[in-house]
């Protein structure tokens, strides 16, 4: 048995309804390609397409997709900001970032804004389809390099302000194993946990990261006196 990055194809739960996906990318050729891949491979239909962030936000509100596949480099509204707005408007929509460069700051911004994970655009089709399925089921798609980035982000946060939400020892352990390339199953075996527990840990880690963003915004608001309600 060979291991794979956390794209667990072995667990093929057949969904009765196809997953409703919105594809957001400013390259039409790319959008067509993804649409073809999704519809061929994976029990998913593309219910909407958008070529920029603003359009994405509008169409998300209109069509209520389950999963949003979003490129980071977009005209008008950038991917990270669009993510935040979509997550706010339609909390059930899971945003999966597709990035060409994997540029750290962009990815971290998007994840903090509420994205469920990110993939490089060069990821194999089968893995993309699988990621869409997993994200629609509420999992987060954590690649090893994302795990490394998240570890660094928590360290940075801790050194800046010890009051910020930090990782528990167990969460740190899990994250390091993800960064080393273990699948959730292998992590579960290694740490004598159930796979569900491992997934929960990952979810909690993401939640803490996104909480930090909210702290940031709140602090900013307090500084500017924006939290004062008019008398």
């Amino acid at each position: 048995m060979s291991f794979r990055f956390p794209f667990n194809r072995a667990n093929d739960a057949a969904m009765s309804e196809p997953i409703r996906v919105m594809v957001v990318d400013d390259h039409p050729v790319w959008r067509d390609g993804i649409r073809a891949d999704l519809e061929r491979g994976g029990n998913a239909t593309v219910v909407a397409e958008a070529a920029d962030g603003g359009e994405a936000i509008t169409k998300a509100r209109e069509t209520m997709p389950d999963v949003v596949l979003m490129d980071l480099q977009l005209p008008t509204v950038k991917g990270a900001e669009a993510t935040r707005r979509i997550v706010e408007d339609s909390p059930h929509a899971k945003v999966l970032i597709l990035s060409a460069s994997g540029e750290e700051t962009d990815v971290m911004e998007a994840v903090k804004a509420g994205a469920c994970g990110y993939l490089l655009k060069s990821t194999k089709t089968a893995d993309v389809v699988d990621a869409v399925r997993r994200v629609s089921q509420g999992e987060s798609v954590f690649s090893p390099s994302l795990a490394g980035m998240v570890l660094q982000e928590f360290r940075r946060m801790a050194s800046r302000d010890p009051a910020e939400p930090s990782l528990t020892a167990r969460e740190n352990e899990v994250l390091v194993l993800v960064a080393k390339g273990y699948t959730y199953r292998e992590i579960a075996e290694k740490l004598f946990l159930s796979i569900k527990t491992v997934q929960n840990h990952v979810q909690n880690i993401l939640a803490k990261l996104q909480l930090h963003k909210r702290y940031e915004l709140m602090r900013y608001a307090i500084q500017r006196g924006l939290d004062k309600t008019p008398d």
């Binding site: 060979s2 794979r4 990055f5 570890l151 390091v176 960064a179 080393k180 390339g181």
Partner: peptide
């Protein structure tokens, strides 16, 4: 078919792994 390299420096120790 795949290999993953991980490196972390913490508390004066470098951890480097190849999986």
């Amino acid at each position: 078919t795949k290999a993953a390299i991980f490196a972390d420096e913490q508390d004066g120790m470098l951890q480097l792994s190849v999986r």
